[in-house]
């Protein structure tokens, strides 16, 4: 059974069809890339799965259970982790506290009023920081981290609740080329070892073609192609609509 099943998603804004019946699935341990030109409906699709937007039609199923239209925090509790295009962490907390906050939320201990939070879930938090290579930064304020480290901290927080599905919106946006590949490789390792299903959008084609298991191409709110990376790279329609001749995708400086 697929972790995520999306069926016939449709959404219109003021008469403009942003998404017109999109269906796909993501299985455990699989990295699915959602690509397409701006305005193709990637964000809309993404935000529907994440619960920020309610679709006009269609269903979202998580591990067989219908979850269409549930708000983000309910989605989180049902096993959806998420990272943002502009990484969002808690700046005034230390790196360790950031992960502790995520673990406390996952354990539903948010409303404990007396016991010091510093004592809760310390080891697990430390372990997550080790897995993401952030253990050395544990005591630092998150506001002082370099952007690449913020992204890794965000990843540690997103997987703290042991989600079934990880949603990543342009995970490598704003990172240096070497960092980009390191981050997506880290995601891939975690995916395999934890049996995570990952759905991500991305503009950086070296990341997509280097690491995605499958690719879904959206244009004008419709799926124009889906399949493994070689098939997508060779697809003439995808080249015409999105990839171009390849002269501009010659890698990042």
């Amino acid at each position: 059974m697929s972790v995520l099943e999306v069926e016939g998603l449709a959404k219109a804004y003021g008469g403009v069809q942003a998404l017109g019946g999109v269906s796909f699935t993501v299985g455990a341990g699989e990295l699915l890339a959602l690509i397409g030109p701006n305005g193709a409906g990637k964000s809309t699709c993404f935000n529907i799965v994440d619960g920020q937007i309610r679709p006009d039609r269609g269903t979202v199923r998580l591990a067989g259970r219908e979850v269409t239209g549930l708000p983000p925090r309910r989605m989180a509790r049902l096993g959806v982790g998420r990272t943002f295009q502009i990484a969002a962490v808690f700046d005034s907390l230390t790196v360790l506290e950031n992960v502790q906050a995520a673990l406390i939320a996952a354990r539903r201990q948010t409303f404990a009023l007396w016991r010091p939070a510093a004592t809760i879930a310390r080891e697990e938090a430390q372990h997550l920081l080790e897995q993401t290579g952030m253990a050395d930064h544990a005591g630092r304020p998150a506001s002082e981290l370099a952007y690449g480290d913020v992204k890794r901290l965000e990843l540690a927080m997103a997987i703290a609740s042991e989600p079934l599905l990880l949603l990543m919106d342009e995970p490598t946006a704003g990172m240096a080329p070497a960092e980009r590949l390191a981050l997506i490789e880290l995601v891939k390792r975690l995916t395999r070892s934890r049996g995570l299903a990952v759905l991500f959008t991305e503009h950086s084609m070296d990341v997509v073609f280097g690491h995605a298991d499958r690719v879904v191409v959206l244009a004008g709110g419709q799926i124009v192609a889906s399949g493994d990376v070689d098939a997508i790279r060779a697809d003439p329609q995808v080249r015409a609509l999105y990839l171009g001749t390849g002269r501009a995708a010659g890698g990042r400086a």
Binding site: A76, A88, F90, S92, A101, A102, A105, A106, A158
Partner: peptide, 15 residues
Amino acid sequence: RACRDSSLRAEALGI
């Protein structure tokens, strides 16, 4: 404090 810093992230964590 987490909600103050980023309500987006807090919601995504299930807070």
